[in-house]
Design a protein around this nucleic acid. Structure first.
Lengths: 366, 366
DNA sequence: GTGAAAGCGCTAACAC
DNA sequence: GTGTTAGCGCTTTCAC
């Protein structure tokens, strides 16, 4: 039996691979040579006029003008593939995110990236690694010649080998977690600071029993959010109670969470949820049980997304600054593309802010 | 004063244009020539083995095996840019959407496209045309050599010239509206059928005064949704009352809508909203005014998105079948790529379905 | 089975 | 100012 090809796949379906030989870029498209021929100059001059800023001086104004006019009339467009092959730049960035666009934070993030990238003249190539089985496939298709750089958002962390290969392949890489690979930058949200803000705020409202909902899968090692939580408790003179840190499976029903909160004694009077979806569901359950927010339970959530602002009880939320995040990532990426050799790995933590709304009022006196 | 360049811009920032000359694709990447040299064969043979399915027979099994092994060891990856230049295929599709990912339907649509495209071995290049000023810029940067095809979702309709140019440039194009350009396919949601389903359902529940909220900007010419609405009214033996068709500005506050509904006599007992956001806000207002859904006002919404399912009052919603839509679009696109010359313009309307939930109960007896 | 050669459209070094 | 030339990495034709 013939051995399965050990070669890194191109990522194309076999029949596409085969069919790929059909077309020819020519066909209808106008090239600089077409223009050169008609205008009686070399294609170099045409290139200098049309596709090279700052070199207009290399061609006499009159001829340049003729070239431009003809190009416009013929509908000339630069062929990006050819340019890329020549320059080694694709002007596209891959945004690889673990998570569905269903989650508001993913959507808002992608939108922020799109804004940043298009502003900078880059194109956004979206890769959603969801479910996680996709991850391997994605990594395998990310090579130079497809993009100039990649940002991995919340991707699985045990992929050092892949990252090393991408890096060695000459790609600019930014991740949200520490990779340990030289020359790969990290931009992340400051989860510790986020928790700190939430707990400080709740403590100031008089709450002394503050619960923290964390993602079950991230529990060990203790996440930044837990660190910040403990810090802030200490700062407020409150005691840490491990039972108040509640690991929660994303996408599971909120009434279970409500029950679990109810079991802890003394009962928590405030909770900081893992994300806005849990928060909204939890508030729903609380109300359904005849209790009220914030009177019976104050709620603060991570993630100041759109739904949170327009909820029945507007939510106090930690704003993670998606725009800042995207800007930082794109800045790092472009810098890397300019200086691929720099070995230093930059680390940037985006500072969150707390947006206070109704859901985190003062503690009710017992 | 020198005339502003009439040439179609490349879409890159001037300094990027300039900086683009720096890098070289070589650098670190392994090429088929590298492998050929080491293994003592021509790069043609290496290409035949690594990047051409079905031509393995052209190389002896032993040598092929050696090539594969070496390629794997060296971490060879095909250079897509070079392949694209040669083959005239980029294996990427641009998804151009008018709208923000904030809107659930846009997110779900993009996700559906991503799924379809990645399944077919294509890459997704996302362009968000929002706000609309972006549109011109986007059109100008869509040329062959960047992608093999484009789908425009809910883009402005007065862009025939642009579309013609794209089409002539050899791109596969699919839109959601009728363009009148030969060889451009159309895939759209069947808005008439959607309204029909909603009204039929409400009529069956005993409602005789059914309001329809339409998008203000689409009002003239009357949209498909209004057509379906009138059809279904007639089918149910109900009279059409123009005052029940309420043009509404997306993103404006729902209490205005509530007031407007209240002004019509006899009062409507049911409403079909333009989208889920308006529906949710409206329900919120209704409840805040001491009324109840569906008892005092039944609500059906266009768009069976995630938020709708998990709302306090689960909403009866028209499911537009985003997955079907994306599949149809991608099928058309790939077919076009195979047969660029076909002049016939295909039209595909995606049939919606109605998902009945709590918000559209029976009419309360007066 | 194998490889030499051509060329996709573009940019850039350099000669004139 | 302008043109010649080379070549980015790949696929494909065709001769051997």
């Amino acid at each position: 039996m013939p051995m399965k090809s050990p070669v890194v796949p191109s990522g194309l379906r076999p029949d596409i691979e085969r069919a790929i030989s059909r077309g020819r870029l020519t066909g209808s498209a106008v090239t600089i040579r077409d223009i050169a021929r008609r205008v009686g100059l070399s294609h170099t001059s045409v290139s200098n006029v049309l596709n090279r800023q700052g070199h207009e001086t290399a061609v006499s104004p009159r001829k340049a003008e003729r070239i431009r006019r003809l190009a416009a009339r013929l509908g000339y467009c630069v062929n990006h593939t050819a340019r890329s092959l020549r320059t080694g730049r694709t002007a596209t960035i891959v945004v690889a995110i673990c998570g569905s666009l269903k989650y508001p934070y993913v959507s808002e993030l992608v939108e922020a990236f799109h804004h940043q990238l298009s502003t900078q003249g880059y194109r956004l190539n979206l890769e959603l690694m969801y479910p996680l089985e996709q991850v391997e496939r994605i990594y395998a298709t990310l090579h130079k010649g497809r993009c100039d750089g990649v940002v991995f958002v919340r991707a699985p962390a045990n992929v050092q080998a892949h990252l090393l290969k991408l890096k060695r392949g000459g790609l600019a890489v930014v991740t949200t977690w520490p990779t340990g690979v030289a020359g790969i930058d990290r931009v992340d949200f400051d989860g510790a600071e986020a928790s700190r803000l939430a707990v400080q705020h709740l403590a100031e409202q008089g709450h002394r029993r503050i619960a923290l909902v964390v993602n079950k899968v991230e529990l060990s090692p203790p996440s930044a959010r837990v660190t910040g939580y403990r810090d802030a408790l200490k700062g407020a003179g409150l005691e840490f109670d491990a039972r108040l840190v509640i690991p929660w499976e994303v996408d599971s029903e909120a009434d279970g969470l409500w029950r679990q909160l109810g079991k802890v004694r003394p009962r928590p009077t405030a909770v900081c949820t893992y994300n806005e979806e849990i928060a909204l569901q939890l508030i729903h359950v609380v109300c359904a049980n005849g209790m009220r927010v914030p009177a019976d339970l104050a709620v603060v959530t991570h993630g100041n997304t759109r739904v949170v602002r327009h909820a029945d009880v507007p939510l106090t939320a930690i704003d993670y600054g998606y725009a800042d995040f995207a800007r930082a990532v794109v800045d790092r990426l472009l810098d890397r593309i300019q200086h691929p050799q720099e070995a230093k790995s930059h680390v940037i933590l985006i500072k969150p802010t707390l947006i206070v709304r109704q859901s985190s009022g003062e503690r009710r006196e017992p």
